[in-house]
């Protein structure tokens, strides 16, 4: 009854490849500084907007709003800087790993997450590049499985070449070709 090339040897758990010992690759060096710049810029923009609103002579603002505006601006500035600092630290610890049969993405400062995506379960791939990413030559790799949109596997901040190589690797992978 057995198929000719069937074999099913016992596999000791210790010998399985473990996600504990992943060969982690860091994202592009530009990625974290770029994000920091964007966040800082956005914070600055919000503060500037508040300031122009405060100092402009054209519209009469309600008294209450005028009095509390400086407080809001300060709050936005402090929160913005805090967020920028935190997300910079978070961006630095993001990494990915490629094994022969699966992809892994590690992220999180306080809440560490390792997402593992077997290549054989990949449905399709997307390379996403916004205007800023295009400018500096970065790309985001999105990998879709049948697990649904909520569980899209994505690696941001890859150099375009790396992203394209990864995509090529996945597309030409024997598992994907078989199940395509």
């Amino acid at each position: 009854m057995l198929a000719p090339n069937f074999s099913n040897p016992t596999m000791p758990i210790e010998q399985l490849p473990s996600i504990l010992t992943l060969d982690k690759q860091s994202l592009s060096e530009q990625y974290a500084p770029l994000n920091r710049l964007i966040n800082l810029g956005f914070t600055l923009l919000v503060c500037m907007f508040g300031m122009t609103l405060y100092f402009q002579p054209f519209i009469d603002l309600p008294k209450g709003l005028l009095n509390s505006l400086p407080f809001f601006i300060w709050a936005a500035a402090i929160l913005g800087f805090l967020f920028t600092w935190l997300s910079y630290a978070r961006d630095l610890v993001r990494s990915y790993a490629l094994r022969e049969l699966d992809l892994h993405y590690t992220s999180g400062l306080f809440f560490r997450t390792v997402v593992s995506q077997p290549i054989t379960r990949i449905q399709h791939i997307e390379l996403k590049r916004g205007p800023i990413e295009r400018k500096v030559g970065l790309a985001t790799l999105q990998v879709f499985s049948a697990g649904g949109e909520m569980h899209t596997f994505q690696i941001p901040g890859l150099p375009v070449d790396t992203a394209q190589q990864l995509r090529q690797f996945i597309l030409q992978h024997k598992d994907v070709i078989k199940h395509g």
Binding site: F110, T113, V115
Partner: peptide, 13 residues
């Protein structure tokens, strides 16, 4: 299985 996720915060670690 389609995907697995391992999650851990500092306290859990």
């Amino acid at each position: 299985l389609q995907q697995t996720q391992f999650k851990q915060n500092l306290l859990m670690k």
